[in-house]
């Protein structure tokens, strides 16, 4: 890409006590991209989010947003970035319009232009009929839309969202990404989103995998999946660890132990399945063959699963 990057992260490291939450992270985001920071909880996403939104100074390295340094020119960075936090940042006891008006004041907007802009964003995120409602009575999905409207009030070129789907039901999650797409096509907004959910990362142009503070992969979801190649075969069985060892010994290649079974990467998976069943008759409960998912990519790269973690989180957030 010949265009100039609008977010440049340069060798960012961050230390909490003795632990390195981020370890020498570098990447660029280009204008108009929908960029995902994907990783398990504790992988470093939130630390990076706090650094990019100027709430935290990195121990080493720096980043530039729209050319402005996040440490030395934090004021400029704050002006050009819209932020959606994982925790709701709305005041429950103010109405939707009052919340937006307050946000506008923080960004130096006022009077008629502010009122117009408030109605524009409420229109854009389909909350104009809720203008006079207290935020406290809105549903989770609606609140998220108010958050999005709030973050976009000052026409930011870059939107940074931290786990925006936390606490949302699947329909609302889907809606959220539709709005992000809309912002991209209508206003050319560049979006950075942290997530631990594969299906969300799958909708982005570029995915950065963060694990244990390190950047383990950076590419489009398609390219990442193609890099694994072939098929993914999942075998479920009574004694997964034993089966894992047997398959690894007999067939070799990429074989991993997962939650309730064994996961194998193979080209031409449909030809491998009969061989597998012949080899271990009566020991296999089920076999499924599929194309690799981002979860497979993550497992391939790090040796542990992303999905189990994310399931637990979805449960917790309900």
């Amino acid at each position: 890409m010949s265009e100039k990057a609008c977010v440049e992260v340069e060798s960012v490291s961050h230390q909490y006590g003795k632990r390195w939450a981020l370890n020498d992270i570098s990447f660029q985001v280009y204008p108009g991209q929908l960029f995902a920071l994907l990783g398990p909880n504790g992988g470093g996403k939130s630390t990076l989010f706090r650094i990019l939104t100027t709430l935290l100074s990195p121990t080493k390295g720096t980043a530039r947003i729209e050319g402005a340094d996040i440490i030395k020119q934090s004021h400029d960075v704050r002006c050009s970035v819209g932020v959606v936090f994982q925790n709701p940042s709305l005041d429950d006891r103010l109405t939707v319009l009052e919340n937006l008006t307050h946000q506008g004041h923080l960004y130096g907007l006022k009077g008629v232009p502010l009122r117009q802009r408030c109605h524009e964003v409420m229109d854009e995120f389909d909350i104009d009929d809720r203008a006079k409602d207290m935020v406290g009575i809105l549903s989770g999905g609606l609140k998220r839309r108010v958050e999005l409207a709030k973050a976009n009030l000052h026409h930011p070129k870059i939107l940074i969202l931290d786990e925006p789907s936390t606490g949302l039901d699947p329909a609302a999650r889907l809606g959220l990404f539709t709005y992000l797409e809309k912002l991209r096509t209508a206003d050319g907004v560049t979006t950075l989103v942290t997530t631990h959910l594969m299906d969300e990362a799958d909708r982005c142009d570029i995915v950065a995998f963060l694990d244990d503070g390190k950047l383990v992969a950076l590419d489009s979801p398609l390219a990442l999946k193609q890099a694994i190649g072939g098929d993914v075969i999942i075998v479920t069985t009574q004694d997964a660890p034993a089966m894992h060892e047997k398959i690894a010994n007999r067939f070799g290649g990429q074989v991993d132990l997962i939650d309730n079974g064994v996961r194998i990467e193979r080209d031409r998976g449909h030809e491998f399945v009969p061989e597998l069943i012949e080899a271990f008759p009566n020991e296999i409960d089920s076999v499924t063959v599929g194309k690799p998912t981002l979860d497979d990519v993550f497992l391939h790269l790090t040796g542990h699963q992303l999905a189990r973690d994310s399931h637990e989180n979805v449960e917790n957030n309900r």
Binding site: T53, T54, L55, V83, F85, N87, S89, Q103, L106, K150
Partner: peptide
């Protein structure tokens, strides 16, 4: 609750 975070992230 996060209200203050949004204020801190604003150019205020």
């Amino acid at each position: 609750e996060g209200f203050m975070q949004a204020v801190l992230a604003a150019p205020v």
